[in-house]
Design a protein around this nucleic acid. Structure first.
Lengths: 356, 356
DNA sequence: GGTCAAGTGTAGATTGATCTACATCCAACG
DNA sequence: CGTTGGATGTAGATCAATCTACACTTGACC
């Protein structure tokens, strides 16, 4: 019991508290859970025993029978500010609910399955996932064991909920904007889908298909460039594109991280920023930054995170049929497509211009 | 057992596997843990039962007696790219070790204690913390129950390890650089410490004290501006500073997030970027971005994360006395202090210039 | 005084894994 | 033929909580 380095103390358990308070462990459990059948006198005694021992229930033991009061959040990687924005929204919504969030980044691995499984192994009460590439059938099977909300992908699920952005509307709004500015040679930089892109319902595949349709409708030549989700790869792709003999007048990137990579390459190659319009999707904080000023589509990541938490908590409490929450995107026009824009008008990071 | 919506299936347990394989639960446990006393024949039978049922051991049950094979990572908030860089380094180091990382952001709450406690409640095998404001005594007490590595703060701990950057050397290198450029009026934008800043051993307090000493030594007038860790507040502070009658010629911010907020305000107020040198600390990816090009101190966040994981795993396995790992910082000179720098020389995000 | 119900508290099963201690088997060897 | 010992598998306790079922107390009411 000495605190020699290497020898760890045993944490006080519920029965330590029970002994000190002179009651049964079950009574302590009731006090902790604020359950029915506790006299004020006993509550008092137990509470003071808890504070005296600095007792905290172990979640592992609790999860064996009851709930863990923990939600799991699986995100592809931490490099994309949009994902952290979603997490922030979720955390804010969770405040005061008694639930705690644990985050499992799935990093290198594309599908996210290992990260999702590890959350399930942890007996979380529910999972929020941003996995563009995990198979829907696989998710349905996992949803048999634990409530799930999937973010971003336009699935048609049976057992889990989804929170999506209207990617068709967002893409159309952006193309409206670019075409209205007179652009005809509009390239699209997007993320290589793991599955068949013509079937995939990931946000990027939907944006890509919408782009293709719209270009065809306008009688314009589509130019599609693929990249990984990482900015370094986006830069390589942009470099290849911008070194071609015919450089597009506008580049519409599938998300802001890619778009900012493009801006970086434009600067690096010494090209005139006014000659190349660059647009993104997401409206991460950095897009509104004075030095960046990126035209993009705001899909309200914080609200997506908050909505996901709400859906998940309701599903945990009462189940019910699968639901789909769709958020309307808003175009934010900034200097990356309209260089003449007065920088003093966009000081706060979030756009004051909106169309569409 | 039907898969009606709302009714969840029971996950297969170790005894389900045991029954199917015709062995005892203890035998299955042995196979899972790769323990001694398993014949090839039995291993074979058990393995195929596991795959047939798609069985995965529940970590909650496992943590009751054994280990959870989970490490907890407490970070202040997700808005600072430097923290996510550290997490990336830790995750990479952890690859293939059999351990999994869960992240608990402590967001609004300054001390991080609730987040740390919630990790401890989860029976993680060890904790990595970035909590500038949690009391050392409190950490020592927590370290009696669970191995801990603290990042950033220059503590003198008994029961936990630390990974720090040599903040004195880093600050001196930056001031060397600014003074060599001829700056005399150098302001310091830093984060308001929760505790007494003259005693605090947080990175920001150390940088602040080093700045004060150096300015005194050079016979220069210090100018200190406080902010919260968030960029919006940094912008407000920068606005106040840059609207004064006498504007400093250089602003040394306590970290890159603050510095980028300053750059944003310089652009917003229409000031000449060449007239105001801005420097940061951390060398986040964004600092090397073509549009930003921020002079800063690289403190190798990924390596800090990796070192923290190594220390923690060793402590989990073998205990031993407290250890301190110190990383040498490197100055990265970019256009925010030397505007004449050729942009083509710093294309890759990571500085190619280094002094100090 | 007896019955009933509401209010309090406890005993003991339960959860799913690990871990210790032991039983059994089989081969080798004196 | 008995013994020994390594190899293999199992029984049952254990971890720390929850949860069900029930016992006991108390007061009200007939």
């Amino acid at each position: 019991m000495e605190s020699t380095v290497g020898t760890r103390k045993r944490r006080p358990s519920i029965s330590d508290v029970a002994v000190l308070a002179g009651v049964s462990p079950a009574a302590v459990s009731k006090v902790i859970r604020d359950a029915y059948g506790v006299s004020p006198a006993m509550r008092e005694r137990v509470q003071s025993a808890i504070t005296e021992l600095n007792y905290r229930p172990r979640i592992a033991a609790r999860s064996m029978r009851g709930s863990s009061f923990t939600l799991g959040f699986e995100i592809p990687h931490l490099g994309n500010e949009f994902f952290t924005q979603i997490v922030r929204g979720a955390t804010t919504q969770l405040e005061g609910s008694g639930y705690q969030l644990i985050i499992a980044p799935s990093l290198g691995d594309l599908s996210g399955e290992p990260a999702l499984e590890s959350l399930a192994d942890r007996q979380v009460d529910g999972i929020i996932a941003i996995s563009p590439d995990v198979a829907p059938e696989w998710l349905e099977r996992l949803a048999e064991y634990v409530p799930i909300v999937l973010l971003g992908r336009h699935d048609d699920p049976v057992a889990y909920d989804t929170v999506t952005n209207d990617d068709i509307a967002g893409t159309e709004a952006m193309l409206d904007h670019l075409i209205a500015l007179g652009h005809r040679d509009i390239a699209h930089l997007t993320i290589q889908a793991a599955t068949d892109p013509s079937l995939s319902r990931s946000p990027h595949s939907v944006r890509l298909r919408t782009y293709e349709k719209r270009m065809a409708k306008e009688g314009l030549e589509p130019r599609i460039v693929f990249s990984s989700p990482f900015e370094t790869d986006a830069r390589a792709a942009a470099r290849a594109l911008l070194r071609q003999s015919s450089v597009p007048t506008a580049i519409f990137a599938g998300n802001d991280t890619l778009a900012i990579g493009v801006l970086s390459v434009v600067a690096e190659l010494g090209l005139d920023p006014a000659a190349i319009a660059v647009a993104g999707y997401d409206d991460i904080d950095l897009a509104g930054h004075g030095l960046v000023s990126l035209t993009t589509i705001d899909q309200f990541g914080d609200e997506m995170g908050a909505a996901a938490v709400r859906l998940l908590l309701e599903r945990i409490r009462s189940g019910g049929p699968s639901r789909r929450h769709v958020i309307d995107p808003v175009l934010r026009v900034r200097r990356s497509t309209v260089p003449t824009l007065d920088p003093h008008l966009v000081p706060q990071g979030h756009g004051t211009f909106s169309e569409g």
